[in-house]
């Protein structure tokens, strides 16, 4: 891991978050190499969302550091981290429901370039709906729009918090295709419950359990790991 760490886009050192007496994320060291699709899995309440919340700055860390592109960003407010090249999609769909798809993507890009917006929407197959109101879209399409917004930000790191939640089987296949198309262009950190999606997409997996890292490794290794099976996979 030492050699890889020097190429890491994102690193955390001893990242911890406590709520009162409860430790949601406990001393997590994490390294994400550039270009990787990395899945973060773990049972409910394992601290996955809290962890990426601290990475993106939505949640303040109780202890520890976050480094992005080798720079310590722990003290930076959210908007500066996003400006530095992170993008974040919410677990619960968060779009501008009363604005058009074009407006949604334009806000994500920070400009109103029609071609670029169409291109971003085309990645998720919504380019023919650019002038519809986002709130009128089906749930699945709203999730896709949110991914399009993440992509439109041209981030160096794209954080997706349970992107396939609530999607139909056919829509999940479409999602996999979208992520595969992004592979190599951007680094992706993916929180995911659906193990089929994880196994299909992830280059590497980190398992969180009770706020701590249980295991990190290639998908096959994780699948074979007895501790992981006991904590998580076996129960699913």
């Amino acid at each position: 891991m030492g050699a890889v760490a020097s190429l890491s886009l994102l690193q955390t050192h001893g990242l911890t978050r406590r709520y009162g007496g409860l430790t949601a994320v406990d001393n997590v060291d994490f390294a994400l190499p550039e270009g990787q699709v990395h899945a973060l899995i773990g049972p409910n309440g394992a601290g996955k969302s809290t962890f990426v919340g601290m990475v993106s700055g939505r949640i303040e860390a109780s202890e520890g550091r976050v480094e992005f592109e080798g720079r310590d960003v722990t003290g930076l407010p959210t908007h500066k981290r996003i400006r530095a090249g992170m993008a974040y999609t919410f677990q619960i769909t968060s779009i501008y429901a009363r604005l058009s798809l074009f407006d949604n993507v334009a806000l994500a890009m920070g400009n109103r370039n029609r071609d670029a917006a169409t291109e971003a929407l085309a990645r998720v197959g919504l380019d023919d709906r650019a002038d519809q109101i986002a709130g009128d879209l089906s749930y699945g399409h709203q999730r896709l729009l949110e991914i399009a917004m993440g992509v439109a930000q041209a981030p160096r790191l794209l954080i997706l918090d349970e992107p396939t939640q609530g999607l139909a089987e056919s829509e999940i296949e479409g999602f996999n295709a979208i992520i595969n198309a992004l592979r190599g262009q951007t680094t992706i950190l993916l929180i995911e419950h659906n193990m089929n999606v994880v196994m299909a997409l992830a280059d590497a997996i980190t398992v969180l359990d009770q706020g701590a890292v249980l295991a990190t490794g290639a998908p096959e290794a994780i699948r074979a790991d007895a501790a992981v099976q006991a904590a998580y996979l076996g129960s699913g």
Partner: peptide
């Protein structure tokens, strides 16, 4: 201009706007 668009974005969804990198 863009400034006004961001104001509307804050009105519509403040958290999303922050997470798009705008200084709300």
């Amino acid at each position: 201009v863009a400034f006004g668009g961001v104001l509307v974005a804050i009105r519509e969804n403040e958290e999303r706007t922050r997470m798009l990198g705008y200084n709300v």
